[in-house]
Every structure is written in C-alpha cells, then in structure tokens.
Amino acid sequence: MFSRIDWSQVGVIAAKEWRERIRNWWVLAVALIFALFALAIAWFGGAQQGAVGFQGIEVTVASLVSLVIYLVPLIAVILGYDAVVGERERGSLELLLSMPITRFEILLGKYLGLSAALAGATAAGFGAGLLPLAKHIASRELYHYAGFVGSAILMGMAFLSLSLWVSVIARDRMRASGMAIALWFFFVLIFDLLLMGLLVLSKGNLGSAVFAGLLMLNPADVFRLLNMFSSRQVQTMYGLATVMPDGLTDPAVLTGIMLAWVAGPFFIAHWRFK
C-alpha cells in the first residue's frame, strides 16, 4: 500500500489542512492556552501544600497529566470530527474524489495535516510555558519533560484518529459532533468510572493482569500510565503502580500500545471510507 502512495498528493492535502488551522488562529489559541496552564501549574502547583514556586519537573508533570487528559483529547476530537463529513456537506468531497488521487491519500493527508497542527500547538504551548523557568531546569529534567510532551501529542493523535473515523461514518456534521463529544466523554470520564464499578462488583477479585488489560482499552489511561512509569517519584503518587504487571510498566511497551491506538482507528476509517 505505502509503495503506491503519491506523497506529493498527500502533502498537498496535509498543507491545506495545516493552512486552514493557521488562518483561523486555531494553532495560536491552543498554544497560548497550553503555555498559560504549563506556567501556572509549574509555579503554583504546590500551593495546596503551602509552597509557591517551581518544585521540579516531575512534580509539574504529575500535575499537568491530569489536565492534559481532559484538554488534549477534547481539542483533538473537535479538530477532526468534520474533516470528511464537512467536505461532503459542502459538496467538495465529490470534486476531490474525481481527481487522480486515492481515498487513502486523501484521508492520510487530512490526518497528517491535522496532526501537525495539533502537535505544533502542543509542543509550542508547553515549551513556551516553561521558558521563564528555564534557568531552574536541568538537562535531564528537560528530557523527561520532552517525553511528557511527546506522549501528550501521541494521545492527541489517537483521539484525532478516532474523530476521523467518526467523520467518515457520520451522515452530517451535527451527528459527527455529537458522536465525537460522546467519544471524549466515554474515554475521559465514563471509562474509569465503569472500571471502578467493575472492581467493586468483583469485590477486589479482578486479577491485576485483567485490570491492566482493561486499562489498555483507553488511550487516556495509556497516557497516564506512560507518564507514571517514566519516573519513580511520580510512581509514588499513585497506588496503581503496585498492581500493574511488570510487562505493562515498560514505557516502550506502553508507547507501542499508544501507537496502535493511533494507527488502528485510522485504518478502520480508511476501510469504511473505501
């Protein structure tokens, strides 16, 4: 499949999606929001313990993880829900499909352009947010923070892939927006409540392997685990670290699972788009 892709066609579609986000100031607005949150949490994150000021990257990341789990998936699903159905409603999809370009190239170009906009906003925002504190951050801490930002981008791409699938199967933009918000609501808010309910119903007899496997069914939980097991100090803040199997505490394994969440919904969307 990949050997037959005309990457110049993909690049044209991706550049179009990127330019549209630049023109409506979407990237700048999201980057500004992330920068303000990153700076505020880095400086005031320890206020509840009576400490104001930068407490270190690991404490900052632990606080940012809870915020990013809500914001990045929401931005991703809003960004991608009308990528295909919007073109269909405007009548431009038929014109696009009449040209010498495959459906896979169209879908891939849209996904890459939207992913670039999301990744650029996330990296620029979280990077700019810590610029005022650069003199307090060691090079090792920068590596840890870069890993956090990279995992946030991967989670956003996973939810963007889900929203692209929604855009392909939805009949109109109204239904697509409802389905996208429902996906965000389920994975970010409902999933963990259901999992906790299952633990209560099983009276604590749910095996750690089963529990860990269920967590892998949610890209938001994979993101949380990926950042939790990247630092021993962060692990101590979560009791979950004591019940996870060793095989699912390796950041490389968790990154692979997140990449599967990025690729899986996209290829399902392509299969449906054909």
Results as ranks from 00 to 15, higher is better:
residue 145 Y to S: 04
residue 232 R to Y: 07
residue 152 A to Y: 14
residue 200 V to S: 10
residue 152 A to L: 13
residue 146 A to L: 15
residue 162 L to D: 03
residue 212 A to Q: 09
residue 238 Y to D: 13
residue 170 A to D: 00
residue 210 V to G: 00
residue 257 I to E: 02
residue 144 H to E: 05
residue 138 A to Q: 14
residue 146 A to Q: 09
residue 243 V to E: 08
residue 162 L to E: 05
residue 191 F to P: 01
residue 141 E to Q: 14
residue 183 L to E: 02
residue 170 A to S: 13
residue 182 A to V: 04
residue 238 Y to S: 15
residue 139 S to P: 05
residue 188 V to E: 01
residue 138 A to C: 04
residue 209 A to S: 10
residue 229 F to H: 13
residue 219 P to R: 03
residue 158 A to T: 14
residue 150 G to V: 04
residue 208 S to C: 07
residue 135 K to C: 03
residue 185 F to N: 05
residue 224 R to C: 02
residue 217 L to N: 07
residue 250 D to V: 08
residue 238 Y to I: 06
residue 206 L to N: 04
residue 134 A to T: 13
residue 182 A to F: 02
residue 222 V to W: 04
residue 255 T to M: 07
residue 208 S to H: 15
residue 206 L to R: 02
residue 193 L to I: 15
residue 185 F to Q: 03
residue 155 M to T: 12
residue 209 A to H: 13
residue 169 I to G: 00
residue 136 H to M: 12
residue 250 D to H: 09
residue 201 L to H: 05
residue 231 S to D: 00
residue 257 I to Y: 12
residue 252 A to M: 06
residue 197 G to R: 01
residue 146 A to S: 10
residue 212 A to L: 08
residue 177 S to A: 15
residue 152 A to Q: 12
residue 244 M to R: 04
residue 247 G to C: 05
residue 253 V to Y: 04
residue 205 N to C: 01
residue 193 L to H: 10
residue 191 F to A: 01
residue 170 A to N: 03
residue 246 D to A: 08
residue 197 G to V: 00
residue 151 S to A: 15
residue 198 L to M: 09
residue 139 S to A: 15
residue 173 R to P: 02
residue 243 V to T: 14
residue 242 T to C: 09
residue 220 A to G: 14
residue 166 V to K: 02
residue 219 P to E: 02
residue 140 R to C: 02
residue 187 F to D: 02
residue 170 A to G: 03
residue 163 S to E: 00
residue 132 P to H: 11
residue 204 G to L: 11
residue 144 H to A: 04
residue 191 F to E: 00
residue 222 V to A: 06
residue 215 L to A: 11
residue 169 I to P: 00
residue 169 I to V: 14
residue 134 A to S: 14
residue 143 Y to V: 15
residue 241 A to F: 06
residue 184 W to F: 10
residue 142 L to M: 13
residue 223 F to V: 02
residue 152 A to E: 07
residue 242 T to Y: 07
residue 252 A to F: 12
residue 174 M to V: 15
residue 198 L to F: 14
residue 166 V to H: 06
residue 178 G to T: 05
residue 183 L to P: 01
residue 203 K to A: 14
residue 209 A to K: 15
residue 146 A to N: 07
residue 141 E to H: 09
residue 216 M to E: 03
residue 139 S to I: 14
residue 237 M to Q: 11
residue 220 A to Y: 02
residue 156 G to T: 05
residue 249 T to D: 00
residue 190 I to R: 11
